[in-house]
Design a protein around this nucleic acid. Structure first.
Lengths: 120, 120
DNA sequence: TTCAATAGTTCTATTTTATCGAACTATGGG
DNA sequence: CCCATAGTTCGATAAAATAGAACTATTGAA
């Protein structure tokens, strides 16, 4: 099994990030990891909303996030832990990921905090 | 020929915008329109960089931008003029389009003005 | 050390989406 | 009416996403 490719931050392309996050599932995974902070396993996001995602699809989603430069995946024992590369990505593309996360949050995908009204 | 669908701004989804702009050609078209200001015809962006885009593909790109809520297309005589819906989109998703344009600009895709230094 | 369980990856077939040439439609002018 | 221009739609092919099934890696027993 090849050892998981992580692009250097200078090789990360905007289109890859946009493509990765143009899928609401993947955006939700990113937010999920962000909320944890400490490295999330694939299996712990097996369901997003009411939809159960097959693990082959999940694995692919993580791969796309990884190869877009958004996350780093490390094996810890039997499971894989995923960490955001936010600092690097923010240094390269200031405000990009934040604006995307805000955009998704302004819709009504109230996963954790549906108690406010953003912008209007 | 159906009269071109433009979504109401409140129906515009973040994933549609990200998907639309995850294609560098479409991002370049958007920037192109932005630089003009006054309504750009499809045919006037027939080539982006060194690549000539077939008009059926171009038409499709404009359609995707339009249905993502990013542009408005109006027929003026024999041609179609395309206008950004930036104010609306910015009101709904603050900073999103700007961050995306900046991200693309920080790479070296100098389509029309290669005479400057893009940050690093 | 062999076996089983867990966590993910890879393979493969199927579906979905994108691309682009060719044909078509719309508008304006001679 | 006919032609030119500008764009859309159609249709065939190519590329990408989805998800079930099989495989690999790691850990922890027996």
């Amino acid at each position: 099994m090849r050892p998981l490719f992580h692009p250097a931050i200078e090789d990360v392309a905007p289109e890859a990030i946009l493509h990765a996050l143009s899928d609401p599932n993947r955006a939700a995974i990113l937010v999920n990891i962000l909320q944890e902070g400490g490295g999330k396993a694939c299996s712990s996001v097996a369901a997003l909303g009411d939809r159960v995602i097959p693990k082959s699809s999940l694995s692919n989603h993580f791969k796309i996030l990884r190869e877009a430069g958004l996350i780093r995946s490390e094996r810890h024992g039997v499971q894989m832990r995923n960490y955001l590369r936010l600092d690097e990505v923010n240094a390269r593309f200031p405000g990009l990921v934040g604006a995307i996360i805000n955009a998704y949050a302004s819709g009504v995908e109230g996963g954790s905090d549906p108690s406010h009204d953003p912008s209007q």
